[in-house]
Design a protein around this nucleic acid. Structure first.
Lengths: 240, 240
DNA sequence: CGTGTTTGTTATGGAGCTTAACGAAGCTGA
DNA sequence: TCAGCTTCGTTAAGCTCCATAACAAACACG
C-alpha cells in the first residue's frame, strides 16, 4: 500500500466538492441578481478560476442549469416532506398546512429555483430520462396522495365537493392508480389536483411579487384561508 | 399647403408601424423558439435590417422587453374583457367561466407573454410609473370585482365559504375599496383572491407543461371543475 | 433647391460562451 | 524512484451578440 488506497476516491471527492461549489456559487449569484440567468464568467470570478476551467465539470451552461433544476426538484420535495414529517403525527389537517406552508416558504425563499422548475421550462432542458416527465409534479402528487391515503386509513376522508367526475379525468386517475403514483379514487384524484392548483396559484402569484401590495400578515391569513378552502373542498379534515 | 399637410403624421405612422413590426417580430421569434429571450440580431435579420437600426426605436433590449410586457398586460386584459362581454348578458356563472377560459386560453396560446407578466419579474424592468405596481393584478382584480358587483346587484351573490376574515385582510380590502379598485366587502374580497389564485394556479401549471401527462379532455374537465369550485366557495352562482 | 431631421448603413469595441493547445500536478505501477 | 497517464487548470483564439460612433442616403419643409 505504497500510496493511499483511498487516493482515487479522494480525487473524486475533490471533484464532487468543486461541482458542489460551482452550483452553490451559481445559486448565490442567482439570488444576488434576482435572475435565473447566470454567467460562467461571474461564477469563475467568484471562485478564483478562469471561465474555461468550469468546462471540466459541466459541458456547457445548459448542463449546469439542468443540474440546478434537478437539485431544485429535490430541494422542494425535501422541504415539503420534512415539513410533513415534523407535523404532529396523525393530524391530517396539520400535515396539510405544514406541507402547504413549506411549499410556499420554499418558493418565497428561493424564487429563482421555484421559477426554474415550475416556471416556463427552458427551451433545451430535457427532463431526466428516468421516466417522470415532471418530477416536481410527481413529488407534489406523491405528497398529496399520501396525505389522502392517511386520511382514508383514519376514516377521516370525506367526500370531495365535486359534482361529477368526467370520464377523461377518471381515466387519468385510473392510469395514475395503476402506476402506483396515486392511491386514491378518481374523485379524490380530481380533488387533489384542485388542491394543488389552488396552493400553487397563491404561491406562484406571491413569489412573483403580485401580492406585494398586501400586508405580509394579510398574505399569511389569505394563504391559510386558501389551504382551508382546498381541504374543505377535497374532503380532508379542515385546519383550525 | 404645398406638400401634404399630413406629411409629418405620415412619418410618425411609418415609425409606429416599424415599432409594431419589431414587436411582432420579437413575439414571433419568442413563440418560435419557445423562450422569452430574443436577440436583436435575429429580429433585424427577419426584418431585413441591420441590428444597429433597431436602436432608432428602442434604446436597448430591455426597453423592447418592457414594451412587450406592457402589450402583454393589455393583451391579457382585453382577452378576458372580450370573453366576458361576449358571454350571455346577466349570466354571472357564464361570465365567470368565460373569463376564466379566456385567461387560460391566452396563457396557453401565449406562454411566453404569460411568463413575461406573471412569471418571475425581469431584474431591471421597472413597472410603468403610472401607479399600479402590477397591472395584471389590477386588471384581474377589476374583472373579478366587477363580476361580484354584478352578482350583488342581481341579488345572486351568496356568502363566501370563509370562516372569518382576518383583520389584516379586512384592512387590505378597505384600502382597495377606498381606492375604488374593489367594490365589495372584505369577505368577498378574500373570496376573490382565493378564486384568482385557484384560476391562476391551474392555468400556470398547465401553461408550463406540468399537466402534459394528462389528456386534453381531462384537463378541460379539470379546469371547469376548478372554476366551479372557486365560484361555489366565493358565493357566486355555480356554473352548470 | 438648401437645410436640418430621420433613418438607415458600415466600422468598431467589449463581453460572454466555447474550443484548442499547452503546462502543472497527482496518481499508478514497474 | 521514475516514466506514463489522467486530471485540472491555464492562456490564446474564434464566434456571437449587444451597443456606440461615424457616416451616408432619404425626406420634410422653408
Amino acid at each position: 500500500m505504497s500510496p493511499n488506497p483511498r487516493s482515487a476516491p479522494r480525487r473524486e471527492r475533490a471533484r464532487a466538492a468543486t461541482i458542489d461549489e460551482i452550483k452553490q456559487t451559481a445559486l448565490a449569484l442567482m439570488r444576488e441578481r434576482g435572475t435565473v440567468e447566470v454567467r460562467f464568467t461571474d461564477i469563475a470570478r467568484v471562485m478564483d478560476m478562469t471561465p474555461p476551467a468550469l468546462y471540466r465539470y459541466f459541458a456547457d451552461r445548459d448542463e449546469l442549469v439542468s443540474a440546478l433544476i434537478k437539485d431544485a426538484y429535490e430541494g422542494l420535495g425535501e422541504a415539503v416532506a420534512k415539513a410533513r414529517a415534523e407535523a404532529p403525527p396523525g393530524d391530517i389537517a396539520a400535515a396539510w398546512v405544514a406541507a402547504g406552508q413549506a411549499y410556499r416558504r420554499w418558493a418565497h425563499e428561493e424564487p429563482q429555483q421555484f421559477a426554474l422548475i415550475l416556471g416556463m421550462p427552458l427551451p433545451d432542458y430535457a427532463a431526466p430520462p428516468d421516466g417522470s416527465t415532471s418530477e416536481a409534479a410527481g413529488r407534489a402528487m406523491a405528497q398529496l396522495s399520501s396525505l389522502f391515503v392517511e386520511a382514508l386509513h383514519q376514516g377521516r376522508l370525506g367526500p370531495p365537493r365535486i359534482r361529477e367526475v368526467h370520464p377523461a379525468v377518471e381515466l387519468c386517475a385510473r392510469i395514475k392508480h395503476e402506476q402506483h403514483e396515486v392511491a386514491v379514487g378518481p374523485a379524490h384524484f380530481q380533488a387533489m389536483m384542485h388542491a394543488w392548483a389552488a396552493l400553487h396559484g397563491f404561491t406562484s402569484l406571491e413569489a412573483n411579487g403580485h401580492f406585494a401590495w398586501m400586508d405580509p400578515e394579510a398574505r399569511d391569513a389569505l394563504f391559510l384561508g386558501q389551504l382551508r378552502l382546498a381541504a374543505e373542498a377535497a374532503g380532508l379534515p379542515v385546519p383550525a
